[in-house]
Amino acid sequence: MSLPWAHPLFRAVSGGEWHPGGTAATERLWRACRAALTDGAGHGTDDARDAARPLRVLDAGCGEGAAALRLAAEGQRVVALDRTSQPDWRHSSFPAAGASRPLFCAADIRRIPLRDGWADVVLCQCVASLLSRPENFFAEAARVLRPGGVLGFSDLVRRDEAQGRPAVCDTASPLSLSGGCAAGAHRREAWERLLRTAGFRLLSFTDESRELARLTAQLVWYGDGESLRQIGLDGAAGCRSVCRKGSRPGYGVWVAVNTRQTI
């Protein structure tokens, strides 16, 4: 059994960004975060000196780092964390002259190695559901964001009545809600409760379940029997159960602002 995102099939289908929607979804989330800062939803952003400098961005759970590299290429100052280092962190192309390079670091996003109030934006895409205590990540995100900083967050959303529980990624069916990575999914209200508890004010929610369905469909289409079994999309506990709507998670995207007044 492989973790879905570690499997060559998943990587070939997802195109370098290991979450539903890929690059386009990251672009949408980034634009929404930028808009939230510009609109002043992230208060304290109207200082001219602040507006001129590159934004400080934390990509929490960056995977191979494709999104971090793109943001750095557009001039942002990016720190990218993942719990395991990736070969691509070393081999990725160097930035164009004048552009910065992301600082990649292997770290637990529940213990972020950054000072309080460092970040303008924190991005976290489809990672929190893998954590045993996601509330610790939200607390850390609030700590490293400056007052008025913006969190762009996306993750799996339960659509049944059951409560989420800590993810266990080595079970028989990683993408099903009964076990595996999707076991860490929460209902929308539960995710939002975690965000509010950490001190975030919600600005928007977008249901992007279609992107998750599209990714799963691509995996089913291009995967052979063995690959699908390895990532938990085939066999007795596999696709037939994952393909039922009630047992399949949705996918949500939130933008939230850090309401803390001081660092």
Binding site: T216, V220, C243
Partner: peptide
């Protein structure tokens, strides 16, 4: 596969 994919995309 075609039937499975249709069902997935139709949610």
């Amino acid at each position: 596969k075609m039937l499975e994919v249709e069902r997935l995309l139709e949610d």
